[in-house]
């Protein structure tokens, strides 16, 4: 989802080397049991993505569960348009982006209150975060997403394009803008 480009270009394609999956509902083992294989296969990747974006173990555990719950609920509608790994990452990115926006809103509210640090929930103690993570989280969710996919998760341009439903060229230009924004954010962190 793009805050800056409501109309995005969808890039069709399939990541090489990743099999498409059949619906768990079609399995004789039952939907939940079959979904377990997907969960176990992709858990580390999804939790890792969330952890690197949020820096919080607590948030990672919660959001990872949310992602797989949402995936299970949505699996009947999943038609294999993209590999299941990309589909799960999309859900994860959406969940993290939503967390980022909500957390930013909460920080705005709390910043006006005379509270001390230990009263803040774990996932709002932004002052305890490493400066680089604070800088990342200060960017737009679009910029966070593209940096996360390409640099933090090591996805190629084409894979990132598929994940974000934009063209590889758009990924490249968005990466450049995101890097510039991160540079500014890092400079602000240095001045703190």
């Amino acid at each position: 989802m793009s805050d800056e480009q409501p109309i995005a270009v969808h890039t069709a394609g399939v990541l090489q080397g990743e099999p498409r999956v059949s619906h768990p509902q079609a399995s004789e083992a039952g939907p939940i049991q079959s979904f377990g294989a997907i969960y176990l296969e992709h858990y580390a990747a999804i939790a890792g993505l969330i952890y690197r974006r949020t820096g919080s173990k607590h948030v990672t555990e919660d959001l990872t569960s949310d992602v797989f719950l949402a995936a299970y609920q949505g699996f009947a509608r999943f038609r294999g348009e993209v590999p299941v790994g990309v589909w799960l990452r999309r859900i994860a990115q959406h969940r993290v982006n939503r967390w980022v926006r909500r957390e930013a809103g909460m920080r705005g509210i709390l910043s006006g209150l005379p509270v001390v640090g230990w009263l803040l929930p774990d996932d709002t103690r932004h002052l305890e975060r490493p400066p680089v993570l604070r800088a990342l989280l200060s960017l737009s969710t679009d910029h966070q997403s593209v940096l996360s996919a390409h640099y933090l998760e090591g996805m190629s341009l084409n894979e990132t394009a598929l994940l974000l439903s934009i063209t590889p060229a758009a990924v490249k230009s968005r990466l450049a803008r995101a890097r510039a924004a991160l540079r500014l954010a890092l400079q602000k962190e240095d001045q703190r």
């Binding site: 990747a45 590999p83 790994g85 640099y151 933090l152 090591g154 990466l175 450049a176 510039a180």
Partner: peptide, 17 residues
């Protein structure tokens, strides 16, 4: 897709090349 992140830099043009 299930893999450890790797440094996967591209020339992003205007910012850093």
């Amino acid at each position: 897709m299930n893999r450890e992140p790797k440094c996967n830099r591209v020339d992003t043009g205007s910012d850093s090349g």
